[in-house]
Amino acid sequence: MSESTQTTQRAAINDDMEGMEQFNTLPRRIMTVYLPLAVFIFVLLFPFYWMAITAIKPDYQLTNYENYSPFWVIEPTLEHVKFLLFETSYPGWLWNTMLVAFASTFISLAASVFAAYAIERVRFTGARVTGLMIFLAYLVPPSILFIPLAFIVFKVGIFDSRLALILTYPTFLIPFCTWLLMGYFRSIPFELEESALVDGATRWQILTKVILPLAVPGLISAGIFAFTLSWNEFIYALTFISSSENKTVPVGVLTELVRGDIYEWGALMSGALLGSLPVVILYSFFVDYYVSSMTGAVKE
């Protein structure tokens, strides 16, 4: 399991990427690289453009394709956002989502730091098997757990409360965070720990004073990823929450803003846009951390 450090080193050495590309002529590059890339980016981003443009379109332009170009908006309006913020429970859903995401991320990170350190460095009997179990736990999907979990949540008496989500989200966050942090701890040299031990530090001091400061990038990666995962979670929130004031954004938008046969697309799209913004903003600040946690979880 020590390849990960080797691979990253190899990637760092490998700086001769321009290699043979000088042999490609410009027209050829346009056809094989720039054109497909442009198509990919257009397709991948168009739904967001469509979401945003619908969110600020006045209702009278929304479906009137004869007189107004659907691709643009004349007289943009914030009435859908205003409707959302002042006439629905949307602010409450945002608050719930934020609270649940923060709490479950915090719990998961705290539990994962100890677990990962124990598996990777304390090396108790059966540490390897435990590591494997953690990986297997990561592969158990929420869609086969939600029925028995609903049963448990109901029995414990936390049905239809935010606590139900805060306690169940760590089931998919802890395995992920632990797995990721194990990779980070593995890359911290043993010698640092040994010298601290020789100097008489306790395990707790080693963890807090030596390992954790060095693992900050890993903690950020795991935290960002866990936060977006819990922000995006849907099936548990849909199953465990029934009253409007406890819903999260994805569930609230889908179950409360879709009414009858006439869809209020403006309100729906601004709900989707506003609900996506927090994760997108967070992501934009920490792109590299996010990417490294995503690829890190796959690579180990």
Partner: peptide, 19 residues
């Protein structure tokens, strides 16, 4: 920007697809 479809909550981007 290519990662955006993966980052945005699935339910919310699925709503855009619904539209």
């Amino acid at each position: 920007i290519i990662l955006l479809p993966w980052v945005v909550p699935t339910v919310l981007s699925a709503l855009a697809f619904w539209w």
